[in-house]
Amino acid sequence: MQRRILAGDRLIATFLIGCVLFNYPLLSLFDRPLALFGVPLIYAYVFAAWALVVGLMAWAIERRIS
């Protein structure tokens, strides 16, 4: 029971993190003509944030809490 509550809280936190990462104003910080290893910054940022959110979700759901 405790474990399910914790996993649920982590998912909600992930949702909130995603909302912040994917939107103005954080998004605007990366919305400039720069490149990271040749990849446009905004493009790299969105995909990195996206991967982070998916990874956090997987972690929250799959992790066994010992």
């Binding site: 996993a7 649920g8 998912l11 909600i12 992930t14 949702f15 995603g18 909302c19 994917f22 905004i42 493009y43 969105v46 996206w50 959110v53 998916v54 979700m57 759901i61």
Partner: peptide, 20 residues
Amino acid sequence: GIGFLPVYLGPTLVMALGWF
């Protein structure tokens, strides 16, 4: 450009709440 992406970011966020 990257204007197509929100259509997939939205579902990603919603799935975080999907468990509920």
